[in-house]
Design a protein around this nucleic acid. Sequence first.
DNA 1: TCAATATGGTGGCAATTGCCACTTCATTAC
DNA 2: GTAATGAAGTGGCAATTGCCACCATATTGA
Lengths: 144, 144
Amino acid sequence: MPYIMDNPFKSISILYRKSHIWLNNGCAQYDLTAPQAVIILIVCDFKTLTQDEITKRLSLDKSVIAKTVTKLEETGFIIRSTNAKDKRTYDIRPTDKAWKVYPFLKEELDICFQRMTQRMTDDERAEWKRLLLLAAETTIALED
Amino acid sequence: MPYIMDNPFKSISILYRKSHIWLNNGCAQYDLTAPQAVIILIVCDFKTLTQDEITKRLSLDKSVIAKTVTKLEETGFIIRSTNAKDKRTYDIRPTDKAWKVYPFLKEELDICFQRMTQRMTDDERAEWKRLLLLAAETTIALED
DNA sequence: TCAATATGGTGGCAATTGCCACTTCATTAC
DNA sequence: GTAATGAAGTGGCAATTGCCACCATATTGA
């Protein structure tokens, strides 16, 4: 079946959904879902973040972050502590449990990327990655 | 805020969610949601399709297509008729109402694409589009 | 021919997400 | 200092999606 008349919107949708299914399956062994894994990754990357910072970096609604972070606290992957300077905000930090799965989660992401780019040359892969990042940053910058 | 330590998985997620929000807003004037618009586009592209063909082309679960198609029939954008050769399948065809919005939906998709690639050169835009399509096709081919 | 298997489609349930209204605390303007 | 505005976070609701069990019809194999 040829995929003529295709457009980038459809491609992005397919890549998003499939990569989430892959990541969900890959993370099940750690009792994590894909969105939980993404938050652990970003919290480990930055060591300390507020919920609002996560919201901005992932460009997700703040209520979505609140729900996922609550669950991650319950399951012991992160710790929340009230910020001393601003009592409205939480400082979010990874626990040892998070640091333990961190390298495996990065590996899972890598597997996803390799899977969807397996027909690309190394140059194409690097260029695609660069342009994806450029587009995502452009998109984030658009909203105020 | 610098977006260091970023990865393509996160970029794809952001692009998917934002483009859907944009398309939803753009399609509201036609009383359509983004997923409904995508199905109208593909049905108009191919003139006649079964639900299963839509499922394969969009790489969505068949029950999702069934639900959306049912709604589109109720709102008069498509017609379902039982296939003569296989009574289990429907032939799905666009109505005049679908053909009327079709060019505008294509325009909306174009606006989305322009928005997220506005910092790219024409060459980069074309290359990104090509690689997106390649990755999406690779992804679809992976599942059996 | 007839049983076993495969395929297209439907309905139910749970998870993720987006939007909105709301609370609490900070900051700004007067 | 106090009122008005803004920002961080929460909870509720609806829409989309994925998975599973199921039904009806085709196809295959003995």
